[in-house]
Write a protein that binds this DNA or RNA. Structure first.
Length: 273
DNA sequence: CTGAGCACCTGAGGGC
DNA sequence: TGCCCTCAGGTGCTCA
């Protein structure tokens, strides 16, 4: 489900609710494993800890307390919702975090592709989930030049390369198609055959699409909700994603779809070269 | 090493 | 109504 704009909106929402500064009373896990089992012993250690920092890196949410780091990845269908304490649980609610203030956070994830782990703070920096990640697409470290240089002699379709978190993080199936449409480059083009000017256009398009999607509250196809339970709005302005056979908004040509490594991919055969 | 395919899960929606 | 099939915002493993 969530790509960078959705995770960023969850982070913003949690920050606005004042998560930083809240003290954890207890954490409860329902027992169903996500992508990996959650270590029960870790949950007990977190009681009494105060959240001092909330960040996003790639598609991970990172919480820090004085002594611990908490990593959360939403997978395809994960969401955190915040509300005043209540014992009412929905199906697929897996983790509850109770705060002394009365705030409660619940992790909900029907498909259970998400990840959740608590670790001593010192282990955060070297955690395997956070190593081998490419640059943040909205940082200076991601540019057309970076794409052009790193993509040389690579044969993978540019679309797959953009989704590879080792190359650049945060871009998933929706925003890869949307960014390539804006950059006017076909998704099947091998990265190694992307020209420098095109690489510049792609990097710029990635930044624009992600920033606009963040501002629109992310994209909601079915599951995504922010921490307040609200859907995003960026799906209303998709140029190509999920628009197979519909007219291109620029030239009216029928939008084409095919799968790349098992993922549906959309483009305009006339606007994109 | 690279790239492709599949596995991991549940639920929604379409065809019959 | 119900069954069966396909598909879904991700990623990690295996295999050629």
């Amino acid at each position: 489900m969530p790509e960078l704009p959705e995770v960023e909106n969850v982070r913003l929402g949690l920050a606005q609710m004042g998560l930083v500064g809240q003290t954890i009373e207890k954490m409860v896990w329902g027992g169903q494993k996500l992508r990996r089992p959650i270590k029960m012993s870790d949950l007990g250690k977190i009681a009494g800890q105060t959240v001092v920092q909330l960040e996003r890196r790639a598609k991970f949410l990172i919480w820090q307390t004085a002594d611990f780091g908490i990593l959360s990845h939403l997978g395809m269908t994960g969401s955190w919702r915040a509300f005043r304490r209540s014992d009412e649980l929905l199906k697929h609610d897996h983790i509850q975090i109770y705060f002394l203030s009365g705030l409660q956070l619940t992790y909900h994830d029907p498909r259970r592709f998400g990840l959740f782990e608590i670790m001593p703070k010192a282990k955060l920096a070297t955690h395997p989930w956070l190593t081998n990640l490419g640059p943040e697409p909205l940082s200076e470290n991601f540019s057309g030049e970076y794409l052009f240089k790193r993509g040389r002699r690579r044969d993978a379709p540019i679309k797959n390369w953009l989704m590879d978190q080792k190359q650049v993080v945060g871009i998933g199936n929706i925003y890869a198609s949307e960014a390539l449409y804006r950059a006017k480059v076909r998704p099947a083009r091998p990265v190694g055959r992307v020209k420098k000017v095109e690489a510049d256009a792609i990097a710029q398009a990635v930044r624009e699409v992600l920033q606009e999607a963040i501002a629109a509250g992310g994209s909601t196809i079915r599951d995504y909700r922010n921490a307040g339970g609200e859907a995003g709005a960026f799906q209303k302005t998709f140029a190509v994603y999920d628009r197979a056979e519909k007219p291109c908004t620029a030239c009216a040509t029928s939008i084409r779809m095919r799968t790349f490594s098992g993922r549906s991919t959309y483009w305009c055969p006339k606007c994109q070269v």
